[in-house]
Design a protein around this nucleic acid. Sequence first.
DNA 1: GGCAGTTGCTTCGAGTTCGAAGCAACTCGC
DNA 2: GCGAGTTGCTTCGAACTCGAAGCAACTGCC
Lengths: 164, 164
Amino acid sequence: MPDAPPALDPDELGAYFALIEVASLLRHAVEQQLRDAGDLSYVQFQLLARLGDAPAGSHRMTDLADGVVYSRSGLTYQAGLLEKAGLVMRAPSADDERGITVTITDAGRERLAKVFPGHIEVVRHMLLEPLSHDQVKALAALLAPVRDHMRSTPPRSAAPRRRP
Amino acid sequence: MPDAPPALDPDELGAYFALIEVASLLRHAVEQQLRDAGDLSYVQFQLLARLGDAPAGSHRMTDLADGVVYSRSGLTYQAGLLEKAGLVMRAPSADDERGITVTITDAGRERLAKVFPGHIEVVRHMLLEPLSHDQVKALAALLAPVRDHMRSTPPRSAAPRRRP
DNA sequence: GGCAGTTGCTTCGAGTTCGAAGCAACTCGC
DNA sequence: GCGAGTTGCTTCGAACTCGAAGCAACTGCC
């Protein structure tokens, strides 16, 4: 039987709650803007942004799903929508016959360019405005190791498929 | 005409991306634990936690919705589920006939107590572990003003009028 | 008082999300 | 090579989510 974990002290609670709250509010605001400006959901925007940033403008499905923290089936659905809208293309991977490579189209890049200024403005206005540049830097420096830790820590869900 | 917003510099981008990523990963991990340990979704847990913290163990629906950043209709649905599970009670508000007061039940408090230790453990393990206590304090101090700023900033309709 | 506008909650429909199951392609050991 | 196990993606069903529309109770202004 594991030790009962000690309760969180006020600083820890404060950091945790503030993090969740800030992320929720920010996501909400961004979602609204993306919907208005370019009829994109947040996931769709994240996917396009990742593809737009990639050297060849493409990624495998699984890498995309992991990158944006999304289920595989959910990604299949969203990739289908984006493809139907002409913003991405899907093609079987060259080296692995069962992999699918998703590539952003010119229309996808245009859409990205269309929503980006407003997106930046929202992030600036909601998240960055109350912070000095040094504080922003400090925030990034605090969160980056946490992200790396989370990415490398065995999340219970990453347990390989099922044990017989 | 407003200036085109300047692009985000690497620190700003880093803070923004890391924030979203950390929140997504953390939420995912927590969701899993809550599902396993007590068959609760994250929203349901947040609702119970807020009610458990409240002086009288109760809140109005709208305050709950705003508190956890959730749509009203979604809250109606979730409150219905929690009520059906016997974890909360709903009753018309005394002072405002159209308001509904949601109150946590003993069963609700028990469920909360049941999942809480595991919850804390996940938060500790995923979020807090890679940070010193001073860093946790710094993180809370950085995020709190941002949250307050977001809460007090006109959430929508800040968009300039568009053509009909 | 009364009536226009607001607020608090629910209903409804459409769209989305996820996990489990399923299929095809790859890998490894022998 | 051959089979067992793994991996990449999709399909399927059920559950969740949201905004718009709707209804009842409150408010303000005259």
